[in-house]
Design a protein around this nucleic acid. Sequence first.
RNA 1: GCGGACGUGGUGAAACCGGUAGACACAACAGACUUAAAAUCUGUCGGCCCCAGGCCGUGCGGGUUCAAGUCCCGCCGUCCGCACCA
Length: 889
Amino acid sequence: MVKVRRHIPFLCKRIPFMATERYNPRVAEKHWQKAWQDAKLFETSNDDPRDPYYVLEMFPYPSGRIHMGHVRNYALGDVVARYKRAKGFNVLHPMGWDAFGMPAENAAMQNKVHPKQWTYQNIESMRSQLKSMGLSLDWSREFATCDVEYYHRQQMLFLDFVEKGLVTRKSSKVNWDPEDMTVLANEQVIDGRGWRSGALVEQRELTQWFFRITDFSDELLEALDGLEQWPDKVRLMQRNWIGKSEGMLIRWALDSASAKDGTSEIEVYTTRPDTLFGASFLAIAADHPLAKKAAETNDALAQFNEECRRAGTSVAALETAEKKGFDTGLRVVHPLDDSWSLPVYVANFVLMEYGTGAIFGCPSGDQRDLDFANKYGLPVVPVVMPKEADAATFQITDTAYVDDGVMINSRFLDGMTPAEAFEAVAERLEKQSIDGRPQGERKVNFRLRDWGISRQRYWGCPIPMIHCDDCGVVPVPKADLPVKLPDDVEFDRPGNPLDRHPTWRNVPCPNCGKPARRETDTMDTFVDSSWYFARFTAPWENDPTDPRAANHWLPVDQYIGGIEHAILHLLYSRFFTRAMKIAGHLDVSEPFKGLFTQGMVVHETYRHDGAWVTPAEVRLEEIDGKRRAVLISSGDEVEIGAIEKMSKSKKNVVDPDDIIASYGADTARWFVLSDSPPERDVIWTEAGAEGAHRFVQRVWRLISEAADALRSVEPVAAGEGEALQVSKAAHKAVKLVGEDIEKLGFNKAVARLYELVNLLSGPLQKIAAGEADPALIGACREATSMLVTMIAPMMPHLAEECWKVLGGEGFVAQQPWPAHREELIVENDITLPVQINGKKRGDLTIARDADQLTVEKAALALDFVQAALNGNPPKKVIIVPQRIVNVVA
RNA sequence: GCGGACGUGGUGAAACCGGUAGACACAACAGACUUAAAAUCUGUCGGCCCCAGGCCGUGCGGGUUCAAGUCCCGCCGUCCGCACCA
C-alpha cells in the first residue's frame, strides 16, 4: 500500500459539489482584504469614546520575506485584536519595521546594494506579504525605524536624556578584528576569529556612549512584582539578569614585598564573607589595574593577559572556556589573620565588569574555585558542612559544598550558620580599619551593567553629538536635528563609512564655531525598538510623542513576541519608558501590561548526500506504516532528520507565500493556532496544513449548502429535542471559546470549534436536504451565526464569506461577540465518576443540586459498590461536590 | 559554566485548585460512495491478558495522600538566553 502526498497540492481543479462550489480562498481573501481597506475598518481614532485596548506584536526586522514565525506571531495578535473589537473595545493594532541593523550592511558589502535601498525594498515585499494574511492592522500608522521622521525623534529623545543626566560616556571593550580594522559583533566572532578575515580577534577599549540603566536597577527589579500579566519565567529571567546581591567590599592589604608605588590593597566584592577562613587565593581580572601593572615587569603575565583578552567579549565564551590562572607573584594579607598571606592570580573567569574585578576564592564552597584550586595545587579547607556531618572527618575533594549548614574550621565563627557568620564577619571588618578606612563594608551589588549604545556602523541612528577640541563633547542643537545619514557612502572597505566620509563628519562646533567632528557612532538598534510602541500612539507628532495620546493608550494591553526577547528588549523598553517619563514625554512607567511569549515554528529536516534539502524538494511516502522521504526530482531516498527551528542553513523552511498561495491565509492562520499551545513550539507539517484546509472547506460546505434554508428564518434558541442540543452546544461554545481566547488558549478554542462543527454537521446536512423541522432550522440559524462570529478572529475571510451567504448585514468583523444564555449551559443532571479505593469503577448520574447525603446514599446503592463492599460498611466516603465520589472499602 | 524552560498514545496535544488520563486534531486502518482516483461520509485507533471483564500505563527511581500527569526528593534527556544578531 503506497500513499503519496505532494507537499503543496494545487487546488485549481474545481470540483462541482452538490449545490455549491468549493471555497476559493485566492479570490475571497483578496476581495475581503480590499473591502476592509476601502471601509477603513481597522484605522483607529485616538478620540473614540469606547474603552481603549492596545494589542502589539513585536515588529519585524525587514529581512526580505516573512517566515512562519511571523505568521504565528501576527496570527496570535490578530485574534486578540479582532476578538477585543468584537467585545466593544477601541482597538489599536499597528505595524512597523525594525529597520536598522547589520544585515543591510552585509548585503551592501556582498551585493553592492545601498542599505537604504535594500531595506526599503524588503519592506515593500514584506508589507505585501503581511497584507496577504488579512491582519486587522492600522496601516495608516506604519513607520520604519530608519525613516528620518522616526530617528529624528529618537535623536530628540537622546538629547533630552543627556539633559536629564541619563547618558554617560565611558570606556568599554569591543571585539576588534585587526585585519579588517573593524569592530565585530559577538555573532561575527567564531572560535575567537573574525568571520570574514579569520584573524584572531582582540579586545579593545573604546570610549562609548551609555544609557545609565543601572541608576534604575532597584526600581526595575521592584516593579517586576507589579507585572502580573507577564509570564513568571520572564520576570524571573529579568530578576536574575538584574542580579541584586547583598555582600561586602573587603579590602585586602598587599604584603610589604608586593605593595609598590601607591597600590597597597586589593578591593574584593563577595557575597560570602562567612567563608573567609576557607579562602586560599585572590583572583583578579586580566584588565584589573593591578594585573596590568604587574604585567609591565612580567612578560609571561603580559602574554597571559593578552590571551584572556582574545577570548572574546561574550560571557558564555568566557565561562565555558577552561578555567586558567596565572600567579602574579603578589601576595595579600588575610583580613582576619595578619600572619596569613595568600597568592594573587590573574584568572580568565573573573570579569572586570562585575563587582570590583577581583574575588577571593574559597574552593570548598564554590565549584569554580575548587576546580581552580585543584588545578594549581592550592589548599582546600571546608568551612561549611551539612548539619549532620562530622567536622573532624568532613572533607571536600571534587565537589564543592554550596548549601546551607554549619561553620567549621573558622575559629570564632565555628558552629554558626553561614547567615550568622556573615553578620559576625561584617561587624568585625566594619570596625577594623586599613589605611584609615574600614576594612569591610556592606554593599548591595547588581549584575546589571549600563547599556552601551555605541555602534561603529553606518546603518543606525546617528548619535547627535559633536566633538570639539576646545569645547569637548557638545550636543547638536535641537533646531539642527535631524542629523541625517548621508546617502553617498561606499562599502568597498570594512569599517564605518561615516568615519571616512569627507564632508558629513566635519562640522563647525555649535558652541564656538571652530572646525569640529561629528560623532560617527550610531545607536544600538535596541534603542529603536525601545520606544516604537509609544510612537505608534501618535506617529504624526512633531515631538517624539503626544503625551495625551501616549497616556491614553499605554501601557500596551497585550504585547506578543518571541521568548528570545525576554531579557534585553523588554528590560531596555522598561528603562526607556521611565526615561521618557522623566523627560516629560509620557506619564507611565511600564510599557507592557500584558506580555505573551510565543514558541517557535519548527520543521523536520531532510538530508541527501550530506546536504540539506528543502521540504519543497521532498515527497513523503508511507509504505507499510513506515514513513520515508524521497527527492521529487530523482526519487532517491532522503534521510529524515531532527525537528528543528526553521532556518536557512538547515533549509527546513516553509515559505508562507507558498502556503497562502495554495491554501489561503485562513488555513495558515488556523494551522498555527491549532494543536500546540501558543507558548510552545509548533511543528509545521504539510499533513497538518492539509487538515486545516479541509476544515476550511468543510465549514464552507456545511454552511453554504444550508444557507438557502437558514437565510429566511429568525435565529432562535430551541427548547427541546435535537434542536435543543444544537442550541446548548452553541451557547456553551460561545462561553468557552471566549474564555479560551481571553486566556490566549487558542489551541483549546480551536478544539471547541471543531467540536461544535462536528455537532452541527448532522443537523446542517439535514437542513440542506430539506428534512429539518422549523425548530431545528431556527436553532441552527442562531448556532451558525454564533459559529461564524467565533471563527472570524481566526479565519476572517472565510467568516466574511459565510456571513454574506447567510444574509448577514455589513461585515462580520464589525459584529459584537455573541452573548450566551446561562440557562442553556447548566445541566440539571450531572454524571459523577465513582471510585473504589481511588480507582474508577463506574458512574453515578444524579441531580446537580443533590446534597452530600443523597449523593452518598445513591453511590453506596450502586451494584458495583455493593459488590466491592461485600456487606461491610465503607471505611470512608469522600465526596468532592460536582467532581467525584471515592468509596474507601 | 550560569540562568530559564520542557518531557503524556504512531504524532501535535487536553486534563480548572490533587479528583474519570488521552478531549480535539494529524497519521494509520476498515467500510460506504465511485468504472477508477480524488473529495466526502461512517467506524476502529495507549499496551497487555484468561477480552460482556481485568491488569498495566503520563521520561526514570523513591515519597506524601482516600486519590498524583499535577505536590515533594533524587536522577536522565531535550531546547532556549548569556549584554555588538534582531
